[in-house]
Design a protein around this nucleic acid. Sequence first.
DNA 1: TTTGCTGCAAACCTTTTGCATGCTT
DNA 2: AAGCATGCAAAAGGTTTGCAGCAAA
Lengths: 150, 150
Amino acid sequence: MADPKQRFDEMIEALRRANFRLTPQRLEILKILASSREHPSVEQVYDQVRQRFPTTSLATVYRNILKLKELGQVLELGFGEGGNRYDGNRPFPHPHMVCVECRKILDPDIANLDHFTERLSRMTGFKILNHRMDFFGICPRCQQGRRRDG
Amino acid sequence: MADPKQRFDEMIEALRRANFRLTPQRLEILKILASSREHPSVEQVYDQVRQRFPTTSLATVYRNILKLKELGQVLELGFGEGGNRYDGNRPFPHPHMVCVECRKILDPDIANLDHFTERLSRMTGFKILNHRMDFFGICPRCQQGRRRDG
DNA sequence: TTTGCTGCAAACCTTTTGCATGCTT
DNA sequence: AAGCATGCAAAAGGTTTGCAGCAAA
């Protein structure tokens, strides 16, 4: 994983550039996300922040994560069920191995995606039941300026 | 796309095997999902069902989609924002091109995923901003019988 | 006739928002 | 001192559930 300290500094730098204030709660949330290995949920971040700042509200966690998302400093894994998960350590798209039993999320270390399924299965020992491979972007029509009615 | 009629028959067969009743609302929902080309949301299915059966409730749509999901007869695209989308025409994992502007979802026709991003970009004309490539399965630990606390 | 299915409304859960107060800059 | 950030509570989606009546088998 990326060095948490370095990620933390990068995130602070991004906030500074955007002229956001550095509050204790915000810094704690940053630290948690920068060192996230377990792709925490909002609730998990919330619980952890409250260990140091017990009065922190859920709304504050949501608002800070939203800001970090906008700055590209945290990656949101949008699962429908049971809340999204976040990765502030590697805030760029990358494959995830999601265990549907224990909810663990692992990052397989792959460079080339040939025969990805079999390969991931061999490398991680996972029994793959399903996968997501969705690409987000702008379609040709919208690139020409039209919007929201295709 | 797969033949809607054939998919419809497959879905009915699956329901019969599972001893579910064939109500008019249910059949209509099946038909809509079997011929879905646009990966409809629950709300869209609901609106469409109500064109033929105006008293149909949202709960019924949700309940039927849930059943079809369990039978593997519909694929759920779990987007956090604005509700999930469903594909009853090709109820198996496959890549999707999601336009973040008009919300259109296309199915690129690819067999081999080499250099997938550039390739998809060239083939579809999409400007790719992001992607999802999540694999769902069971990790080695859980395959050994342990659960939900990794 | 039996039991699953439907419609309605309320409940749930996650996320967002309004507002008054507080704190960073 | 100015204005963003916080905490609290209410609101806002989307989805699920309880229950009584209805209908498929």
